[in-house]
């Protein structure tokens, strides 16, 4: 769980950095997206590893939850979990399921059309009918619908909650501790807030700039 979590957090960071380019410079976003979408190392090595990491993380999460439920075969009549642990840490499955549902929508929105264009239709140019890069235009198109933007925002708030516990939990599980622990915990909290809320900012930015606000 922890090793796949490290990989997914690194992926999340680079995804965030690329998406932020869409706010700063559409040209830079187009060029980076084209590089990521056509580079053989990323397409045929990193992408399968990423898909494996996502599936592995979720499957292991469900297995872990099932084993842990079995470890207490009789439930307490009264259990005050809030007295000693955060909601985030006690409900990783809930926040994880919301993120999983969001990933389904995200794949439907971006990954499936991209794979269809490149590997079914065989168009690797990354250009639209006007002969310009299509990536920024496609991104903007997805953030016109207010409901879709709202779903994205809710999912990223849940992702923030997931990371609030998950970031430091991954370090604890791999035994990484020591003098840097206090600073790492603060960094983990900052990461869990800044990165997901950055994605929310990007979604809202494109929605508001396109709807005339």
């Amino acid at each position: 769980m922890a090793l796949s979590a490290f990989f997914l957090m690194l992926f999340l960071l680079q995804h965030f950095a690329i998406n932020m380019m869409s706010v700063v410079s559409p040209e830079m976003f187009n060029e980076t997206s084209h590089f990521m979408g056509t580079n053989p190392m990323i397409q045929y090595l990193m992408q399968p590893i990423l898909i494996f990491a996502v599936v592995f993380h979720f499957v292991m999460g469900f297995i872990l939850e099932a084993r842990n439920k079995a470890a207490r075969n009789v439930k307490y009549a009264k259990y005050n979990g809030a007295a000693n642990a955060s909601w985030f840490s006690r409900n990783m499955l809930v926040s994880g399921l919301v993120v999983l549902a969001f990933l389904g929508l995200h794949f439907y929105d971006f990954w499936l059309p991209e794979v269809t264009t490149k590997f079914v239709e065989g168009d690797m140019t990354g250009l639209n009918a006007a002969g310009e890069f299509r990536y920024f235009e496609e991104l903007q198109h997805k953030f016109v619908d207010g409901w879709r933007v709202a779903i994205y925002c809710v999912a990223f708030v849940l992702l923030a909650m997931h990371l609030m516990h998950g970031f430091n939990s991954a370090f604890q599980s791999t035994g990484i501790d020591g003098k840097m622990a206090a600073g790492r915990k603060k960094f983990g909290t900052a990461f869990a807030i800044i990165v997901p809320l950055g994605f929310v900012f990007i979604a809202l930015f494109h929605f508001l700039t396109q709807t005339g606000h």
Binding site: L64, A71, N84, S89, H165, S169
Partner: peptide
Amino acid sequence: GNCTNTGA
């Protein structure tokens, strides 16, 4: 069960 680091 397995530890999920809740800290309880």
